[in-house]
Design a binder for these strands. Structure first.
Lengths: 135, 135
DNA sequence: CTATTTGCAAACCCTTTGCAAAAAT
DNA sequence: ATTTTTGCAAAGGGTTTGCAAATAG
């Protein structure tokens, strides 16, 4: 987290309590929607507005601190820096992280060879039924 | 295409000229947005409404004939039945298809092993700079 | 003839914008 | 003191809905 505050400083962005609360909440790695962030932050800052969430998320996207995922057209936000891939539960829509970077590299190699082109980045999403839903 | 008309029949959906035109246009495999579909169909059906495009795309999604892609939060539609993966141009946003199913299988195996779970489906997107943009 | 579909307009999201007051550096 | 950020309300853009008229089966 503190490295993110450093990042804020170098970009001349102010470390407001609202912004820090959003970052802290995102760090919980729950891939929340805007609405979910809003509801969560409102507990500590009852007067916060949705516009503030949107503005912060947009600046964080521009900074590269946050990634937007759009499974099924619904925007969800991910603060992960570590390379990973996602599982989307076909039943409840939840996103699950998988951190096997060796597997990702292997896929990247396979795909590079297949397309014969330089791959700038790789997004892998697998359709799953999450452990909660398969009960 | 004719197998799709069969599919319409079995689902008791009517083969209206507008619907057929949309299917034919999607078959061009250009991953259009709703607006692009609308503009294209309007050439043949000047009085068609956007709502008709939306309604048709939604029923086609439910039928599984069409897949919705959301690169960067923009909905685009894909009629492909053949397994394939996508490249998204980081410069112009265009989607490129790659039909190497052997590579996809290989990735699927790699990932199955990594997650130790049953994978229902696999979505692979690679970030690229397309041939037009790299000129 | 009956059920679906179309096209229009209104309604409904979700997201962005403009601006004055508040807060951070 | 300067510049950014907040919070509000209004505006904007994309998508869905309700309904009467038209059309497919």
């Amino acid at each position: 987290m503190s490295e993110i505050i450093e990042l804020l400083k170098t970009r001349k962005l102010k470390a407001t309590p609202q912004r820090l609360a959003i970052l802290e909440f995102l760090n919980g790695k729950t891939h929340p929607t805007i609405e979910e962030i809003y509801e969560a932050i409102k507990k500590g800052f009852p007067s916060i507005s949705l516009a503030t969430i949107y503005k912060n998320i947009n600046t964080l996207k521009e900074m590269g601190v946050v990634t937007e995922l759009n499974p099924g057209g619904k925007a969800k936000y991910d603060i992960n820096i570590t390379p990973h891939f996602h599982g989307v539960c076909q039943n409840c829509g939840k996103i699950v992280d998988y951190f096997d970077s060796a597997a990702m590299e292997k896929c990247k190699d396979t795909l590079s060879e297949a397309v014969g082109e330089d791959i700038k980045g790789l997004n892998i999403t697998i359709d799953i039924v999450c452990s909660d839903c398969s009960k």
